[in-house]
Every structure is written in C-alpha cells, then in structure tokens.
Amino acid sequence: MLAIENLKVEIDGKKILKGISLEVKAGEIHAIMGPNGSGKSTLAAVLAGREFAMVTEGTVTYMGKNLLDMPPEERSKEGIFLGFQYPIEIPGVSMVNFMKTAVNEHRKHKGLEPLSASDFLKMMRDKKELVEIDSKLANRSVNEGFSGGEKKKNEIFQMAMLEPELAILDETDSGLDIDALRIVANGVNRIKRPDTSAIVITHYQRLLDFIVPDVVHVLYDGRIVKTAGKELAHELEKKGYDWIKKEVDKNNLS
C-alpha cells in the first residue's frame, strides 16, 4: 500500500529525516516510536503533504502512485488520513459544516452524489455512536475550546466519517485518561477493515495493548534504527531509549 524509499527531508535547511525506508502492506498496523524530536511528526506531515518540510531525496509510492506529486486534499481523497498530534481549531466553522464539506468532497472524488442533509446527519449519528463521542462536540466549532482529550477523540470521529485506507495517527493517545484511551483504541479497531492499514505513532506501550501492531519501528535522529515485532514496544517501555541510542551512536563511531 505504502512504500517509502530512502526519504530525506529538511526543514529550513536542517536535515530532519535522513533516509527513511518503510513498507506498509494492506491490512498491516505499524507502530512508530522514538524519543522527542526524532522526526515522527515530520514523517507524518510529509506523508500528508505539508509544505514546510522539503523532500530532498527519496520516493514515496502510495497505491502505485507517486504520493509526493499529489496535493494534500488529493491524498486525503485517495484515502490517507492524518490524526494530528495537535488538532487545529477553526473558530466559526461548525463540525457539521466542516464534515459535510469533507465527506462530500470525498464522495465527489469517487463519483458519488453529495449526501442529502438527512442522510448526512444520520451518518454523523452512527459514527458518533461507533466511536462513543459526546454528541455535543459535533455541534460546536471545529476543535474550538475542546479539551486536549476531546480534540483527540474528535480526530477519531473524523476518521470514522472519512473511512480511510491508510490512517496515520500521531500520538492520538497522548493526554488521554485511561477510559478515553480505551474509547479511542476501540474506535480505531472498529473503523479498521481487513484491507486497510494504519501507522500509529506513540510513546506508550499501553496503546499497543489495544491496537496490536504487526511491526514496531524506532525512529531516532531521523532514521529508523530498529524494527521488530510488538514485543519491542514492551522492551522500550521497560528500558527506555538509552540502550538504542548507545547502540546507534556506537555503530556511527565505528
């Protein structure tokens, strides 16, 4: 589904990603972990098409197409969803209006008629139930005045509405209490279909108890320095990143 090949990215002339290669097959869940500032969000942003990060080398192929050539809204309509680490507030724009516009853009892309108002509202209701989100949130402006946890749940709600092929969730678990964590994880599991994939960026093993990854990567200083099965997450939880950093630094020296 997604193939990243030797991806190098700079921000303001500073090298942030230093040659990332990663393949996500249909149906797989990949977890990406790694210390603060290692480049996880940058990778997510590049995949979603944010322009401040400049790709200097490498390729990204998504469903056989050159992803880096597509404008961000095209990527969204082709099935890439980014759950933001810091969801953006848009005062004055109601969630209903926002989602209706988004859903209908996606439908147009697929050659479908826009949903009628009543069908759309029914869809909203169903998805709210699916991800157990507070009904009232959907009547407010996009993320405006939402608590940290509410914003994260709202990301999952939007994901449920857009039914992506590839979901990239950037620390959707941060700032959630244990009940909210369960709700978010359940939501993700319910939305996932057998052939859709997810990249889950997280600092905590506990999320991966709910969303079980096929592969765990460690990103450090712009490189993927370790890839293994889900047991790697447990090890990191126990031992932290120091041992990996040491390993990497030692290799760099030799």
Binding site: A48, G49, I88, T101
Partner: peptide, 10 residues
C-alpha cells in the same frame, strides 16, 4: 487551518 482542511479533502 488551511492545511487541516486540506487534510480532510477540502
């Protein structure tokens, strides 16, 4: 804000 909308297909 614009990017957030873009990312949702707008």
């Amino acid at each position: 804000q614009i990017f957030y909308c873009n990312q949702r297909g707008i």
